[in-house]
Design a binder for these strands. Structure first.
Length: 780
DNA sequence: GGAGAGTGCCTTTTT
DNA sequence: GGCACTCTCC
């Protein structure tokens, strides 16, 4: 049973009692002042928010006076869907007076694309911070903008950085200069954490130190390009909104008056600027409810700061704190495993979820021979599960988008339909971006990114000619324009259709259909393998466009949310494949987590810094807590290596090794492609035994008590890969460089010194790792 | 100045 | 296995 299902009929507040526990009810009924709800996984968080909405409306608050902010697209979608459903049932006979402000502004950003009859909700504002910011900024922009800003998606941004780098003639021919994508993420990190570039480089990207001057120059060039072209990247949306509110107190006041009640979901994922925006909007009256769970903070990499939750009571001293701890989602045996994941955390979470849900079966740890056979075993298990559950109650979760690649092939082979979240976004596919570039030129003929993209589709036009043409068009130099067009007939046709559609200004769906037709010849000749599939995508793009009346909103929405995903929401015939990040806030009856092997999950990149490793642990926690009834953890014994074509043995993920054996059943792939259960006692898995370290001072960004640690003790060295075998031999060499200790991996032998600041270390039972010397305590 | 072949590199997570 | 960048020829 899904305890989170919205009941069919709730008409009066008193009915809430029977659907909510005491803590939830308390949260629902605290509508004035500030409230912080610490909601454990599966504790009915969304349910609480939705009921609180209903309670507000039943108390006579107009939906246009409520603002619902979330962090990810999916969370916002889910919440508004559920709210709509419940509110439609509870408030259908209440008529709300039109709010002056909202009536004049047509500010119902999110809902105009829902084909829903829920008129009572039409003025409820909700969405991600970014989409909310854009909905304001397209109407009122801060000083320095003459037109509403265009939004850059990440490929636009990195394209601009690339051009800026060329123009500045920085680091020409230097191979180790970071790629534009990397540079962009550095810029974004600096902004999200609100640190200078230099600080970020020194803290976590010290290998870029030689380029810090060049990068700083590039940073400035990128900034001024954005200003000149009236474009904003994702980060600008938030900072420019803050600037707008600072510059225009009158505007801020009117928004404060409008949004009498503010709710923020996933508060642990807000960064500093988002936190300030919330405070600005809440104003003096501070009718705000923030909901979050520190154990589920998984966005530190982009500046999310758990401290924001802790600081909530400082910003709102009167704040009431409510904890939701009873879990309504998972069975007790799944929860036991989830709790155990957090037990090993360096920072302790004072949190033990409990439930009244009975045990069905223990979670299973399954060990396939390799990630290739894993795909087969997972697919078989899914087919079996589909006999017991609807496909939309089954999900496969993984650390990184590409981990599901083999599985996707296998599922296709067996005809199992799935949808995939995370990884490459559909709208970033070439053909979609191409057609959207035409569309963007309709809105803004001087959109340089779009212009570059469209011109490069024509043979004979490269970057230089593109620039010449762009300047000629900007200066209305018709002679030059027609001279270039003569050389490239397709380019002339491109400009013609853009001009035609711009002047007639038809509906977004008509525009997309026309452009698709125009693009078809290019599509068929340039994508011989799969142009039918791509054409289908473009047709779908047209359908999505049909839910919009204004082209600029459609374009912005495509950058801010992936409608190809949310459109499929209702499809119950498909199972779900998802990155763990994209799975947050969702739940399924059966959850399968794959690739629980070293270097995959936790990610190889998280091993250098303890706080990164801990974030991986919370990620594991988020993944496991998605399961309602059945949880399967797949830990392949070897991974296919594309480079060599062979398979390399790997250690299981530390998160599996840590688990006490009594928490799960263990199954091993056998030679006939089936599974054999390991009987307890015979194949006892190693358990981690916490070992206290002496007064070691660890180099970490945070001050963590160094006496609490997880160290594999008494583990005999297990040679796991061929590579490690040799290294183990090396380590026995009397010339061994000595012993050292690492917070996570425990004691190990130093095999090699890697100047200037790293060591190669063999950790018994874990394998060989390259570690920064800062994170090692080396024995004298 | 552009096109196409060849080479080296890395492969987190999201708005 | 895909892309970003380089080199060479037209």
């Amino acid at each position: 049973m899904n305890h989170n299902n919205i009941p069919q009929q709730i008409t009066q507040t008193k009915d809430f009692n029977s659907h909510l526990n005491e803590a939830q009810l308390q949260a629902v009924e605290s509508i004035n002042g500030a409230t912080l709800v610490i909601a454990g996984a599966g504790s009915g968080k969304t349910r609480t928010i939705v009921y609180r909405l209903a309670h507000l409306l039943n108390s006579g608050v107009s939906p246009s006076n409520i603002l619902l902010l979330t962090f990810t697209r999916k969370a916002s979608h889910e919440m508004l869907q559920r709210a709509t459903k419940l509110l439609n049932e509870t408030t259908s006979n209440i008529i709300y007076p039109e709010n002056d402000l909202s009536a004049s502004e047509n500010n119902n950003y999110y809902y105009h694309k829902e084909n829903s009859p829920h008129t009572s909700l039409i003025n409820l504002q909700g969405g991600t911070f970014h989409s909310f910011a854009f909905s304001v900024l397209r109407q009122y922009y801060p000083s320095g903008y003459a037109t509403p800003p265009n939004i850059l998606d990440s490929s636009d941004s990195s394209g601009i950085i690339h051009d800026c780098k060329d123009n500045l003639k920085i680091a020409k021919g230097e191979k180790s200069f970071p790629k534009s994508q990397t540079v962009l993420s550095l810029f974004s990190k600096a902004r999200n954490k609100e640190l200078s570039l230099d600080e970020v480089i020194k803290r976590e990207l010290y290998h870029l130190l030689p380029y810090s001057d060049d990068l700083e120059q590039l940073y400035q060039a990128y900034k001024s390009f954005k200003r000149q072209h009236a474009v904003m990247d994702y980060d600008d949306l938030l900072f420019e909104l803050e600037r707008l509110f600072t510059e225009r107190p009158d505007l801020l006041t009117s928004y404060q008056n409008r949004f009498q009640y503010i709710m923020v979901d996933e508060y642990q994922d807000t960064n500093l600027v988002q936190c300030r925006l919330v405070r600005l909007l809440a104003g003096e009256k501070g009718n705000i409810m923030a909901v979050g769970d520190d154990a589920q903070s998984i966005y530190a990499f982009r500046g999310a700061n758990v401290k924001n939750i802790l600081a909530f009571t400082e910003h709102f001293p009167q704040a009431k704190i409510i904890k939701l701890e009873e879990n309504y989602r998972s069975t007790q045996s799944i929860l036991n495993l989830c709790n155990s994941v957090l037990d090993h955390a360096v920072e302790s979470y004072k949190k033990h979820l409990f439930t009244k849900r009975e045990n069905k079966q223990k979670p299973q740890v399954i060990r396939p021979f390799s990630d290739l056979t894993q795909a087969k075993l997972v697919a078989s298990r899914i087919v079996e599960l589909m006999g017991r559950y609807e496909p939309n109650e089954i999900a496969v979760l993984f650390r990184s988008g590409y981990h599901s690649y083999h599985l996707e092939l296998e599922l296709n082979k067996r005809g199992v339909r799935f949808r995939k979240y995370g990884g490459i976004r559909y709208i970033e596919a070439q053909h979609i971006k191409d057609v959207m570039s035409y569309a963007r030129l309709l809105v803004n003929p001087l959109d340089f990114n779009a212009f570059q993209r469209v011109t490069s589709l024509s043979k004979g036009i490269g970057p230089k000619t593109c620039l010449k043409l762009y300047n000629a068009m900007q200066n209305h130099d018709d002679q030059e324009v027609s001279k270039i067009c003569k050389k490239a007939p397709t380019l002339a046709a491109d400009l013609k259709i853009i001009e035609k559609l711009r002047i007639s200004n038809p509906s977004p769906s008509y525009i997309i259909d026309e452009l698709t037709e125009h693009y078809k010849p290019y599509l068929t000749s340039n994508f011989p393998d799969d142009h039918p599939r791509r054409l289908q995508g473009l047709e779908e793009l047209g359908h999505i466009a049909a839910t919009y009346t204004e082209l600029d909103l459609f374009i912005a929405d495509l950058c801010l949310e992936d409608p190809f995903n949310s459109n499929q929401q209702e499809d119950t015939e498909k199972i779900t494949l998802s990155t763990i990040h994209s799975a947050k806030g969702l739940e399924w009856s059966a959850v399968l987590i794959i690739d629980l092997a070293e270097d995959r999950f936790p990610s190889k990149k998280s091993l250098l810094k303890i706080e990164d490793f801990e974030e991986e642990r919370r990620l594991m926690y988020v993944a496991c807590t998605r399961a309602k009834d059945e949880l399967y953890l797949f830990s392949p014994l070897s991974l296919y290596d594309r480079a060599t074509g062979g398979t390399n043995q790997v250690q299981p993920s530390p998160f599996i090794k840590e688990l006490k054996t009594e928490l799960y059943e263990e199954w091993q792939e056998n030679y006939i492609g089936g599974l054999t259960q390991k009987s307890a006692g015979v194949n006892q898995t190693q358990t981690y035994k916490p070992e206290r370290l002496s007064q070691t001072k660890w180099n970490s960004e945070y001050d963590i008590d160094p006496t609490i640690t997880i160290t594999p003790a008494n583990n005999p060295p297990i040679p796991s890969t061929v590579e490690q075998n040799t290294n183990t031999t090396q380590a026995k060499d009397p010339r061994s460089l000595g012993l050292c200790t690492h917070r996570i991996f425990g004691r190990g032998k130093i095999i090699e010194e890697l100047p200037p600041d790293k060591y190669k270390v063999n950790f018994p039972g874990i394998g060989v790792k390259v570690i920064l010397s800062d994170y090692l305590k080396i024995d004298d």
